[in-house]
Each structure stands twice: as structure tokens, then as C-alpha cells.
Amino acid sequence: MKFEAEGEIASALSCNCSMCQRKGTLMWFVPRPDMRLLTPDDNASTYLFNKHVIKHRFCPVCGISPYSEGTAPNGDPVAAINLRCIEGIDLDAIPVNHYDGRSI
């Protein structure tokens, strides 16, 4: 699964929900129109859990989860890109905000 996204990576979000914590996901949120798939959407599988409002996309071959799709509080479509899937960036240089997803 290949994609590209436009925008500045000013920070990342680390969620402690049961899924994100186990995967170690560092999320960067972008408006969904700013992320373009370079491989067909059919190449990705979808996992829904908890409230079934976020589409957790993953590769059915290797199992890696590069992004999720959902809706921002204002109703706009948003993509949560797993920064650990982007090569060539210094993750240690990106400020990380922590979100308590386990309590909601």
C-alpha cells in the first residue's frame, strides 16, 4: 500500500487505547483530501473496533497499518497516518502528544 500526503508534520499523537498502544502507532492527522492513495483502495483491508467509526486500514499481506480514516469533530473526513510507516523522517524530532483513548 502506497500513499502520499501533503502537510507539515508539526506533532504526532500517541493513543493508549488497546489497539494503538499495542501497535505503537504515532498518528499524524491530515484532511483526507490531502492524502492520495498510490495503490488501489482494494489493496487495503479494513478493521473496525469499539464504536466502528474509524476505518483502520491495513495490508492483508504483511499486516502493517499505515493509516486510518475517520471524521473530524467538525464533520470533515480525516486521515490518521502512522508516522512509523514513513521512511526518512526523524521520529525523535517530532513532539508527541498523548491521548487517553483507553478511558473513553
Results as ranks from 00 to 15, higher is better:
9 I>D: 03
82 N>I: 01
2 K>P: 00
99 Y>L: 14
62 C>T: 05
19 M>Y: 14
12 A>C: 14
34 D>Q: 15
85 C>W: 01
54 I>V: 15
56 H>A: 01
17 C>V: 09
94 I>K: 00
51 K>W: 04
26 L>V: 03
61 V>K: 12
14 S>N: 06
39 T>Y: 01
60 P>D: 06
75 G>W: 12
28 W>A: 06
9 I>M: 08
14 S>L: 03
49 F>N: 08
63 G>E: 14
75 G>I: 08
43 N>Y: 08
92 D>Y: 01
95 P>V: 06
31 P>D: 15
16 N>R: 04
55 K>R: 14
45 S>H: 10
63 G>N: 11
1 M>V: 06
15 C>D: 02
101 G>L: 06
60 P>G: 10
26 L>F: 09
97 N>E: 15
2 K>M: 03
70 G>C: 11
74 N>Q: 13
89 I>A: 10
32 R>T: 09
49 F>G: 05
38 L>C: 09
47 Y>N: 11
99 Y>R: 06
40 P>W: 00
46 T>H: 14
18 S>G: 13
80 A>P: 02
43 N>H: 13
104 I>H: 14
40 P>E: 14
33 P>M: 07
73 P>L: 14
18 S>D: 10
39 T>V: 06
38 L>R: 14
41 D>V: 07
42 D>L: 08
38 L>H: 05
30 V>W: 02
59 C>V: 04
26 L>A: 01
50 N>E: 14
8 E>Q: 09
99 Y>H: 11
34 D>W: 07
16 N>C: 07
76 D>H: 13
47 Y>H: 15
41 D>H: 04
36 R>V: 11
9 I>W: 07
71 T>A: 09
103 S>F: 09
54 I>F: 06
48 L>C: 09
93 A>D: 10
101 G>N: 06
98 H>G: 00
6 E>Y: 10
39 T>E: 14
47 Y>D: 12
85 C>K: 05
55 K>L: 06
21 Q>F: 12
91 L>I: 10
56 H>L: 06
38 L>P: 01
1 M>S: 00
61 V>M: 03
96 V>M: 11
46 T>A: 15
62 C>L: 08
31 P>V: 07
97 N>I: 07
56 H>P: 01
101 G>F: 04
14 S>Q: 09
104 I>A: 13
70 G>F: 10
56 H>G: 02
102 R>I: 05
39 T>D: 15
89 I>R: 08
40 P>R: 04
58 F>N: 02
67 Y>Q: 01
1 M>I: 02
102 R>L: 12
35 M>G: 00
12 A>Q: 05
31 P>F: 09
93 A>L: 08
59 C>Y: 02
50 N>V: 07
50 N>Q: 13
62 C>W: 09
71 T>L: 13
69 E>D: 06
88 G>I: 11
40 P>M: 00
64 I>C: 10
31 P>C: 10
26 L>S: 01
29 F>I: 12
9 I>P: 03
29 F>R: 11
61 V>R: 11
82 N>L: 01
46 T>Y: 05
22 R>S: 11
17 C>D: 10
9 I>V: 15
46 T>P: 02
93 A>G: 05
53 V>A: 14
43 N>V: 12
86 I>G: 01
25 T>W: 03
61 V>Q: 11
28 W>N: 00
14 S>A: 15
96 V>F: 04
89 I>Y: 07
102 R>W: 12
16 N>G: 05
20 C>F: 02
31 P>I: 04
50 N>R: 13
35 M>T: 00
12 A>S: 15
69 E>V: 05
44 A>H: 00
